[in-house]
Amino acid sequence: MNKDRVNGLVVFGIGVLAYWGSQGFNRREAALSENPALYPQLLALVLCVFGVALAIQGLIRKESSKQAPRGERTGVQRSLYVVLTLVGYAVGIYLFGFILPSLLFMFGVPILLGASRKTAFLVSVPLTIALYVTFFLLFKVPVPQGAIFR
């Protein structure tokens, strides 16, 4: 199946789900303009139509699905690892605050992206300090303090 057919079906599915989800909204039948479901339902219907149109476009064009080349697959894997590391980083700063997880993140991710351990070690401390100074001291924006230290 080509990309557009799948995408069309996904969009159609989102439209159906959005329409179905809006049926439970608290309605005031007195006036149409006060119905909180009216506008999302219209959008959901439009998305369903667009989804079907995209799927039909995909059927007409009949593009064959290609296997991604090996280099691209490795790139996708690398991006996936970075996303997982980001999730870990977010959990880390929530629990332990900004400094410790940031030091680990600034050391680990460059290595994951192909930098040498020496480079990663040399940049992790200055990068963490630079971000802390920029946010907390220069722009007076709060950085996470860590749930376990509160």
Binding site: V82, L86, Y89, A90, I93, Y94, F98, S102, F105, M106, V109, P110, I111, L113, G114, A115, T119, A120, V123, L127, A130, L131, F135, V141, P142, V143, P144
Partner: peptide, 28 residues
Amino acid sequence: PRAVLNTGILSLCVIGTYAVQSSMFDVG
């Protein structure tokens, strides 16, 4: 080195999003 630059930007994205409302939900 791009690896270092990309890491710094990703950290900036996480901390910056948190900073707007001090919300980890927003980071998610």
